[in-house]
């Protein structure tokens, strides 16, 4: 009762009961505090409404295009994606250029659609929102298992014999080793993988760790971390948040060569045996939409990249590749087996 009491007093002496004489006499010269204080509610809301319409209008240009494409109706756009294994800015730049290149070579509209996690890129490949995706070994297998007729078509030269690099913070007291068994020194350390579904940042490293007798579930200090991407793994190990981690060799080489890694803080301690990794996987229905020879033309657009042409060289450089070569589904049987053993592919 009483809390409203004071409000009643407040209301009563502001609007309806305010004597007319006072208002006529003083309000012209002196702003009466109360009515002004009462207004902002309504007035601010109206301002808000106006503001919204304006921002809406400003953003409408992207909004409309985004909406059109997102509603999935447009069959004429060839949408490419990639697992988010590196800094999003890097990916955006790389695949922006790739999309432009493909658009020119193929004569169709090509768009790059970023995603936040590995599994999402597989899901969107399955739903058909992404027509062709740059997958890792594991995600590629997962994607093909979910889309009948999907095909692994291209990989970089290095992906035939890909490696992971175990890295360590220099203060952690870990020694460089050259056989798998040497990984046993990681037991009891704070350790991070990259993404949960990464081949080079999780699947194969876990496979080698288990060969060395280190179980990620139980043998690290706390559970093993999942940083999300290779760049983040490097950053967190260099900062000492984790004592050790594992990244893909191509990212490691490219970052160290560019001088982006502080080698006084983080150092490579082990290079794994080779395995098949990254590759482009394409949906079977592109043939119906873009023509029977579409897959062949996509392959050509990559295999014919010429390091002497500055534009092509930039693409190769951003991919960390010397060349693109053709690949096929059978190359990933080993990965699939390891993934099944580790429970990363159901049944």
């Amino acid at each position: 009762m009483n809390a409203t009491d004071s409000l009643d007093v407040f209301e009563a002496c502001t609007t309806p009961l305010r004597p007319r004489t006072t208002r006529a006499g003083t309000s012209a010269t002196r702003p009466s505090g109360r009515p002004l204080r009462r207004l902002p509610g309504a007035r601010m809301l109206l301002v808000l409404a106006a503001l919204l319409v304006v921002t809406g209008a400003c953003a409408s240009t992207d909004g409309a295009t985004h909406g059109e494409r997102a509603s999935g109706g447009d069959d004429q756009v060839f949408t490419i994606g990639a697992i988010p294994d590196q800094d999003p800015e890097r990916l955006q730049r790389l695949y922006g250029i790739v999309a432009d290149h493909l658009g020119e070579e193929l004569g169709v509209a090509v768009e790059y659609e970023p995603v936040t996690d590995y599994a999402a890129s597989v899901s969107l490949f399955r739903t058909g929102d992404l027509d062709m995706v740059w997958f890792g070994g594991l995600t590629g297998v997962q994607a093909r298992l979910q889309v009948d007729g999907a095909e692994a078509i291209l990989q970089r030269g290095i992906d035939e014999r890909f490696h992971s690099i175990f890295i360590a913070n220099t203060a952690a007291g870990l020694q460089p080793v050259d056989d798998v068994a040497g990984l046993s020194q990681l037991a009891g350390k704070r350790f991070t993988f990259g993404s949960e579904s990464s081949t080079s940042g999780r699947l194969m490293p876990q496979f080698f760790l288990e060969q060395a007798g280190v179980s990620p579930e139980t043998d690290f200090a706390g559970a093993a971390g999942f940083s999300g991407s290779h760049d983040k793994t490097i950053e967190l190990v260099a900062a000492g948040t984790f004592e050790a981690g594992v990244v893909n060799e191509q990212v490691w080489t490219s970052r160290t060569e560019a001088g982006e890694v502080d080698l006084d803080k983080v150092t490579a301690i082990f290079r794994t045996p080779p395995y098949h990794d990254y590759h482009w996987v394409i949906r079977p229905d592109v043939v119906e939409r873009f023509g029977d020879d579409f897959v062949t033309r996509v392959k050509a657009a990559f295999t014919e990249l010429d390091p002497r042409d500055p534009n092509d060289a930039e693409i190769l450089e951003l991919f960390g590749a010397e060349e693109f070569i053709e690949t096929d589904n059978d190359n990933y049987a080993e990965i699939e087996q390891v993934a099944r053993d580790l429970g990363l592919i159901a049944q």
């Binding site: 002496c13 003083t26 009466s32 109360r34």
Partner: peptide
Amino acid sequence: AGVRFGAT
């Protein structure tokens, strides 16, 4: 002694 609330 006097007490003022707002203008009154």
